[in-house]
Amino acid sequence: MTALGLLYPGHFAEDDYARIEQLLGSDIRVDLVHTDVGEDAHRVEVLRQIGTPERLAKGVEQLRLSGAEAVVWACTSGGFVHGWEGAQEQVRSLAVTAGLPASSTSFAFVHAAKEVGAARVAVGAPYPEDVSGLFAEFLRTGGIEVSAVHSSGSVTAAEVGAWGEDEVLALARAADTPDADAVLLPDTALHTAAHLPDLEKELGKPVLTANQVTVWEGLRLADRRVNAPGLGALFTREPIVQV
């Protein structure tokens, strides 16, 4: 049994993780601990407070007791708004507090894009334009070219959490560009686990979503590979050999 520990802010799309755990179809357990959100707003100054060491530390002990082998901060915007160095420090602090390998959804997107061989990506973000721009900047710092950024302008995670398949597909279509190797849909408040096969069939390329890459990142930290076609190309491809 491999146990993954995720620190997830609030209650928006946490049912995605139960679905992902089921689709993995193996001895994988995904343990979720909810952290305090404070104000629900897609504003930079608010997002920088979501992932403070104090808030994350409150959930760490519960994950330790669950037997987690790795911990991931399951919040995209709560990582990249700190910039590359700030997000690295956030993860280092989390690893020290947990005594476990640690990462975040922001870094998961960079690692996952490289895993599927996507040197150039298009971003469909539920956030306002300024927040979306910070995500694109984060990706570029991580060595990923961004061909286009589409922002839906949603101001709260609660709004995004209420979206269904039609809204998710519309976001992906609006973001895609012919030269993009993959389409990225950030925000762990977005329900996507049930829609991954349809998204990739519609666009004809890998689609990476926040909750999907978060679990994949936890498995990567735990040194586990799982073939799960229902979770998209990220979970079916052979690893890309970097030369």
Rank of each mutant, 00 (worst) to 15 (best):
A98G: 05
A98W: 13
A98F: 06
G99P: 08
G99Q: 06
P101Q: 01
A102M: 03
A102W: 09
S103N: 13
S103E: 11
S103G: 14
T105G: 05
T105F: 01
S106W: 07
S106D: 02
S106K: 12
A108I: 06
F109Q: 13
H111Q: 15
A112K: 15
A112P: 07
A112C: 07
A112S: 14
A113G: 13
A113N: 12
E115T: 15
V116E: 10
G117E: 05
G117A: 09
A118W: 10
A118T: 05
A118Y: 06
A118E: 03
A119H: 15
R120G: 12
R120Q: 15
V121L: 11
V121R: 14
V121A: 08
A122D: 01
A122S: 09
A122V: 01
V123L: 13
V123C: 10
V123T: 10
G124Q: 06
A125H: 06
A125P: 12
P126C: 00
P126Q: 04
Y127E: 04
P128W: 04
P128L: 06
P128V: 07
P128Q: 04
E129V: 15
D130R: 11
D130C: 10
V131T: 03
V131G: 04
V131P: 05
S132R: 03
S132L: 00
G133P: 00
G133R: 05
G133L: 08
F135I: 07
F135P: 07
F135C: 09
A136N: 08
A136K: 05
A136W: 03
A136E: 06
E137Q: 13
E137R: 11
E137L: 14
E137T: 15
F138T: 03
F138V: 04
F138P: 02
F138I: 00
R140F: 12
R140Q: 15
R140P: 09
R140H: 08
T141M: 11
G142L: 02
G142V: 02
G142M: 00
G143V: 03
G143D: 03
G143L: 04
I144K: 02
I144L: 00
I144A: 02
I144H: 00
E145W: 04
E145N: 08
E145T: 10
V146H: 00
V146C: 07
V146L: 10
V146E: 06
S147T: 04
S147Y: 01
S147E: 07
S147V: 02
A148Y: 07
A148N: 11
V149E: 04
V149H: 05
V149A: 02
V149L: 08
H150C: 08
H150V: 12
H150G: 08
S151W: 00
S151G: 07
S152D: 14
S152A: 15
S152F: 12
G153V: 00
G153D: 08
S154M: 11
S154R: 14
S154P: 12
T156G: 08
T156P: 06
T156D: 02
A157V: 04
A157K: 14
A157H: 14
A158D: 08
A158K: 10
A158N: 05
E159P: 06
E159Y: 04
E159Q: 12
E159S: 08
E159H: 07
E159W: 01
V160I: 02
V160M: 02
V160P: 07
